[in-house]
Design a binder for these strands. Structure first.
Ligand SMILES: NC(=O)c1ccc[n+]([C@@H]2O[C@H](COP(=O)([O-])OP(=O)(O)OC[C@H]3O[C@@H](n4cnc5c(N)ncnc54)[C@H](O)[C@@H]3O)[C@@H](O)[C@H]2O)c1
Ligand SMILES: NC(=O)c1ccc[n+]([C@@H]2O[C@H](COP(=O)([O-])OP(=O)(O)OC[C@H]3O[C@@H](n4cnc5c(N)ncnc54)[C@H](O)[C@@H]3O)[C@@H](O)[C@H]2O)c1
Lengths: 218, 218
DNA sequence: GGTCGCTTGTGAAAGGCTTCACAAGGCCAA
DNA sequence: TTGGCCTTGTGAAGCCTTTCACAAGCGACC
């Protein structure tokens, strides 16, 4: 899929590719057949040149004078992002946010199956919620290994997050999405991304405060 | 707080400032008094030079040979980020994720009070959940104006997100945190940040796929 | 007071990302 | 076939961010 083996792709490019993909899926639903870099840019909050540059890092997918075939580009992006398969995900911590995620169908729609959930609260284990079995946290390593789970989501209180991350990493998980508002350390062969709601709000607070109702963003 | 009026501060800097702040609060809880740029960097996943450069955009807060005073730097960052006050937030959409957010105490702890929540489902309105009154979505503009709410959180299905954003913007909200996995358009005087869980997972999928599972260990 | 070890603040260099600008190519109508 | 119009793909330029490297400042101890 990527033409020249090892080009370093920036995180911002990858993020934009995901946004393009999200938009392309919407266009597919709408039955649109072709899309230009300009339209893509408009729908994704970026510029046409940026769209073309992002895509050109992986190959030539468009037709001059015409644009891109929605369906073809969608499949191409899925390939680039590694979405030509389904991913098995472990959810750790089935409290308020964990339960919401368990019932969140968009994850499965986009290729991520929560294969098992874990909680340290004995009252919760054993249940099946949204079709997912809830295991005791003690069985994490065992079940993750058995089910060849490659992604983990941490939805426990911050105090437990590091310990959970250690266990996920030890069990062979390659990447972790962390909802606990703390920085966590993992070995170099594991990737962590932290989503912190209040931190995002703080960013908005800064924008409103330093106040220059800025030229928006691109 | 910012020494020279209008320097443009990048989004990545602001994000790191929030991370530093989060870490400083933890150090405060631990009773630490001083912290160096190196320790800050270690705890926040960045480099000492980056920490110093970020802070230097706003002034000189440390003491050579010693480091930074935890408490002082914490308050300084709160000031820079506009957290020297509390923010009133409207939550729109009280479903699975909206309910989780209503019960999420970290928001209030970090300065963001959900002052009102809105849902289009008549069965939900009128209730008080986690101390927050649930209004009919029809009253959004009215209540947002009345209560001088400046921030909005969108937690409705993606189909409604744009309409809700329009209404929030029209009601005077200056910034929006959007949980619906769609790009939304707003006037230039409004800032939107979208949090898309599956999009983050896609980023992890890319990393695992393009897979130079790094040389890792030393 | 003087020396030593440590850390900040900051110009300058390096590196990376985005924007520009345009040649090349596709489509269509005449 | 030709001309007009449109869009891609891409080197190069421009801009921005990160990293480097070091003078200067601080505290401690002799
Ligand atoms: N509630 C929200 O809307 C929200 C939003 C974003 C992030 N978060 C973060 O997500 C995390 C969970 O928040 P919550 O509101 O769902 O809390 P919660 O208390 O409702 O749920 C936490 C769950 O984790 C379980 N748990 C605790 N330690 C565990 C361990 N070691 N292993 C397995 N399970 C364990 C608990 O039994 C509980 O069920 C927190 O870090 C919070 O900051 C919450
Ligand atoms: N469930 C999750 O874990 C999760 C996580 C991240 C993002 N999201 C996103 O958050 C949004 C909500 O997801 P959910 O799972 O909570 O769905 P949900 O169906 O449980 O809740 C949606 C709520 O929004 C209300 N609503 C619909 N239209 C409205 C309108 N115009 N005004 C006010 N309220 C309206 C509905 O009555 C319902 O209560 C979706 O966009 C989803 O993609 C969900």
């Amino acid at each position: 899929m990527s033409p020249s083996g090892q080009r370093r792709i920036s995180e911002s490019t990858v993020r934009r590719l995901s946004v393009y993909l999200r938009f392309l899926r919407e266009l597919t639903r709408q039955g649109r057949e072709l899309v230009s870099s300009r339209q893509l840019a408009r729908g994704c909050g970026t510029t046409p040149a940026q769209v073309r540059k992002d895509l050109s890092l992986f190959g030539s997918f468009g037709k001059r004078g015409r644009g891109y075939t929605v369906d073809e580009l969608r499949r191409t992006l899925e390939g680039i992002l590694g979405l030509g398969r389904r991913w098995r995900v472990a959810l750790v911590g089935v409290g308020k946010i964990g339960s919401a995620l368990l019932g969140y169908q968009d994850l499965a729609r986009r290729g991520f199956d929560i294969a098992a959930a874990f909680d340290s609260d004995p009252a919760k284990t054993g249940q099946v919620v949204s079709g997912v079995r809830l295991y005791s946290a003690e069985r994490l390593t065992e079940v993750v290994r058995m089910q060849h789970i490659e992604l983990g989501i941490i939805a426990t209180p911050p105090e437990s997050a590091q310990a959970v991350a250690d266990e996920l990493a030890g069990a062979g998980v390659g990447a972790i999405l962390n909802f606990a508002p703390v920085e966590i350390d993992v070995p170099d062969n594991v990737t962590v991304r932290t989503m912190d709601v209040a931190l995002e709000l703080e960013g908005l607070s800064f924008v409103l405060t330093s106040g220059d109702r800025m030229p928006s963003r691109k």
